[in-house]
Write a protein that binds this DNA or RNA. Structure first.
Length: 271
DNA sequence: CTGTAGACCTGGAGGC
DNA sequence: TGCCTCCAGGTCTACA
């Protein structure tokens, strides 16, 4: 499910919970990508949610005594539900807030997500410390990318999906951004010109900001915290369109596997 | 250090 | 129906 725009939309949707106090945490399955801290219910009880931020695809929920670090993995979802609604098979965690008619429920069929706790600065956590810049920040520009990808033999699609270079570019938006930039995904990163890198940077910023405005992509199962669909999936120009005609030039969209992930491109529009 | 393959896990789609 | 294989939004870890 979630690429960066989906995580951002989720994070924004949780804002009404800021200032609320945790009454209880109900954990039905501790086994996510990493085990949920066994004492999380004890830790969180009585704490106030002070702030919600996003870094890469992590949601950082700062409480009185520390920060909850949430990652949705491939299939995770956070939904605001009415109190008392029956948990389904993959509803692993409920966060219950005092004096509220709703709970925050974490659902994740594949359990690739994570829910961690830190008393320290979450940005210094081992999972966040080495992350590259946010795509929408100024720091992420052609000069930076050129420096980072110099002499790299890796293909450009794998490079832009590598969170050490830039965060938040997942498999869908990597294909889309490279189509937008007119660059084939299999090109070697180190051989791209400054001008081409500039096109890639601009396309990534463009695609990601548009997707956030549209409320994220709905593949099979993305809904925002209130269960509403995003709309960006209607705007995919190459992702999932193999064998169909390119909207720009009518030639057939191709699919190939790069870095073990399926990639989509137009052989005509992308050089 | 660099690049890639494997791992984690469940469910849905399609073939027979 | 049922069984089998393949595929899926992420990303850490081990290994060559």
């Amino acid at each position: 499910m979630p690429e960066l725009p989906e995580v951002e939309v989720t994070c924004q949707g949780l804002a009404p919970l800021i200032t609320k106090f945790v009454k209880a945490v109900v954990i039905r399955n501790y086994s996510l990508r990493w085990p949920i801290p066994i004492d999380l219910p004890i830790i969180l009880e009585g704490q106030q949610l002070l702030e919600l931020k996003r870094r890469a695809k992590y949601i950082l929920a700062r409480f009185t005594k520390g920060t909850l670090i949430l990652h949705l993995g491939m299939s995770g979802r956070l939904c605001i539900m009415p109190k008392g609604s029956k948990p389904k098979k993959h509803d692993h965690v409920d966060f219950v807030f005092s004096d509220e008619a709703v709970i925050l429920r974490y659902t994740d069929p594949r359990r690739f997500g994570s829910i961690l706790w830190t008393k320290d600065n979450p940005l210094e956590h081992r999972l966040l410390k080495k992350l590259g810049p946010e795509p929408l920040e100024k720091e992420f520009d052609a000069e930076y990318l050129e420096c980072k990808l110099k002499n790299k033999k890796q293909c450009i699609k794998s490079s832009i999906m590598d969170a050490h270079n830039v965060v938040g570019v997942g498999n869908i938006y990597a294909s889309e951004a490279l189509f937008n930039a007119g660059i084939k995904p299999q090109r070697k990163s180190g051989q791209l010109t400054r001008k081409e890198l500039q096109l890639i940077v601009t396309s990534i910023k463009d695609i990601i900001s548009k997707a956030i405005l549209k409320g994220g992509s709905t593949m099979n199962d993305f809904f925002d915290v209130n269960g509403e669909n995003g709309y960006f999936q209607n705007e995919h120009k190459v992702y999932g369109r193999e064998g169909k005609n390119c909207y720009e030039c009518q030639s057939i969209i191709l699919q190939s596997t790069l870095g073990q992930r399926s990639s989509f491109f137009c052989n005509q529009c992308q050089k």
